[in-house]
Design a protein around this nucleic acid. Structure first.
Lengths: 233, 233
DNA sequence: TGTGACATATAAGTCTGACTTTTTATTCCC
DNA sequence: GGGAATAAAAAGTCAGACTTATATGTCACA
């Protein structure tokens, strides 16, 4: 799942990044490139590349004669998919999940409204296909199949909105949905009401009913928020 | 204005980044580290760091025996403030501005609703102060003063929402608003209706009227969208 | 005692050159 | 013509020397 992967540089990043986003070094902490290079048993060149990437994420700041200082969380590039993944894997996963779900509740209804206007016939077809897939996997503990179609459904909506900023949130939504299925409590089959809403949403988009699409999506994200409230009141 | 600034590495990035986001190298184009190092007259180490940062923004992908290939635009980390700035400075500025304004229209109303619930007394005071500042600078071609308070106003709203994802969009909104004042046509004084809406919004938040705050913000962002339609129909 | 100029130490920044590793492309043999 | 051995190309890695900015401490002078 970790996208960085390749190269010595990536492996160091996959260790150091999560440590920082987990808050193991309080803001203002100073790290030194040489020490880090020793710790990870890599050359300074590799370590410098890692620091540069962390710096571009605004996780740290490198200054001469001082070292690499960890920045406070409110400076971090929290939209960086890498940072999101690191934080979701860490201790403040619940808080992060809530932030992202609230974000979804703002974005997705508007995206659905736009999708109703701009979706191509192919995208409409995909949407109904996904909805049918959700129905088919909505009972009998077929959680993986359900998740697959759910993710695909929301991806199509975001893409069909025609707004690149919305489209880029597909990965985030995928992460949130998959987190709900895998990490959190989800013994039961999915809520039948939610399934119905998705079917109706596919319908609304196909019929170019922007207002209805927006309203239905609002109900879906409301449900997601309430689900969170039940899990972590 | 360019945040990268510091260091030889930053200067190269400030040239190469905009070139890529401007689409000067079509997706799939292959760059070679050595050639780039020659071109910018820097060592390979520096060039490698630049490539690493571009890679973390998903602007390029580096593969052995192949080189540094430019990725298609739909892969880019379009929420990276650096990328946003580069793109706003480039040729597809209008399209980018529209994407961001649509994003605002989705986020800010929800943020305002939350701000009405969670804003501290200090934040409420700041809000009214900003609104007054906008009023004071709304006539007599005091565009800079108006912009300053406008940016501050929206920043407070986003921060007061209590959602870190929303808060982080403060810079984006600042960029959009400042872009409107500086780059685009804005000879006239700001729209009086918009000023009134901001004053009313500060009121609504102070009075904890979430629904009204959300509605007023929707009107503000609607106005911003219509303004764009007039400029680039 | 406070203040400013100066000296010093430190850690990042940069460059160079050699070597390794992976992956693509070519060649050669069957 | 196809598959295995081979060569080449580019990124990846490393080590060491040198440069530069800058925080901090020192000392003289007011």
């Amino acid at each position: 799942m970790s996208t960085t992967g390749r190269g010595l540089h990536g492996r160091v990043l996959d260790t150091l990044g999560p440590e920082i986003t987990a808050g193991e070094y309080p803001p203002g902490s100073v790290l030194r490139t040489d020490e880090l290079a020793q710790r990870f048993d890599v050359s300074r060149s590799v370590m410098r590349e890692v620091v540069r990437v962390l710096e571009s994420m605004h996780l740290v700041e490198s200054r001469r004669r001082v070292g690499v200082t960890v920045l406070p969380a409110h400076e971090w590039n929290v939209y960086d998919p890498q940072v999101i993944r690191w934080r979701l894997a860490g201790a403040d996963r619940p808080r992060q999940l809530r932030s992202l779900t609230v974000l979804r509740s703002a974005i997705e209804p508007v995206a659905a409204g736009l999708a109703a206007r701009y979706a191509t016939p192919e995208q409409c077809a995909e949407l109904t296909e996904c909805a049918l897939g959700m129905v088919a996997n909505s009972s009998g503990h077929r959680l993986e199949g359900y998740l697959f179609h759910d993710v695909a459904f929301h991806r199509v909506i975001l893409t069909a909105s025609g707004n690149e900023m919305f489209a880029r949130l597909g990965d985030v939504v995928a992460e949130v949905l998959s987190g709900r299925t895998h990490h959190d409590v989800m013994f039961e089959d999915p809520d039948p009401a939610a399934v119905t809403l998705h079917v109706q949403l596919a319908e609304a988009v196909r019929e170019r009913d922007a207002a209805r699409a927006e309203k239905l999506t609002r109900e879906i994200t409301e449900g997601a928020l309430q689900e969170l409230d039940i899990l972590a009141p």
